[in-house]
């Protein structure tokens, strides 16, 4: 079910966490939109998120959809990005970590789906517990 043009189109969001910002009301969105749902302005511009945020909620998937069995069980979460929006994503490097709501997390680029018959590996964002939480704000 992996269509090459589809995932190629998604590379800005998947690799660089690009969403949108509204020129009129300044609200920021992930995933990207072309019309602002808040003030209805058009012509939203690309906005790259920092990738830093806090964990809003999390779950461990034990009954995976087709294509994800090799990764299971895996953790997923919703993250409140520093710039405001929420994002849903897989969580990475959670082994031995007690996940908790509110913990700081950061974006990492990881494999989302293995190569299927066409040989295209989908990479994209996941979030991991902050490596050095004492130095919030990044490396």
């Amino acid at each position: 079910m992996m269509e090459l043009p589809r995932f190629h189109r998604l590379r800005g969001a998947y690799y660089r966490l690009e969403g949108s910002a509204c020129p009129a009301c300044e609200r920021r969105f992930f995933p990207p939109r072309s019309v602002c749902p808040s003030c209805k302005a058009q012509g939203l511009r690309t906005f790259a998120f920092s990738g830093r945020g806090t964990l809003y909620s999390f779950s461990r998937v034990l009954q995976p959809p087709r294509g994800f069995a090799a990764m299971a069980p895996y953790d997923v979460g919703m993250v409140r990005l520093e710039e405001g929006p929420l994002i849903s994503a897989q969580l990475a490097d959670t082994e031995g970590v007690d996940l908790s709501i509110g913990m700081p997390v950061e974006m990492v680029t990881r494999k989302i789906r293995d190569a299927e018959e066409h040989g295209y590996i989908v990479y994209g964002y996941k979030f991991r517990p902050l490596l050095r939480p004492g130095r919030a704000g990044g490396p």
């Binding site: 909620s57 897989q90 709501i101």
Partner: peptide, 23 residues
């Protein structure tokens, strides 16, 4: 593109809501 492709099943979406509600 932003939920299913990441392996976030329908049950997982509801689990995220449930965990947050419990919190």
């Amino acid at each position: 593109d932003y939920e299913a492709a990441h392996g976030i099943s329908f049950a997982a979406l509801n689990a995220l809501l449930m965990r947050r509600y419990m919190h």
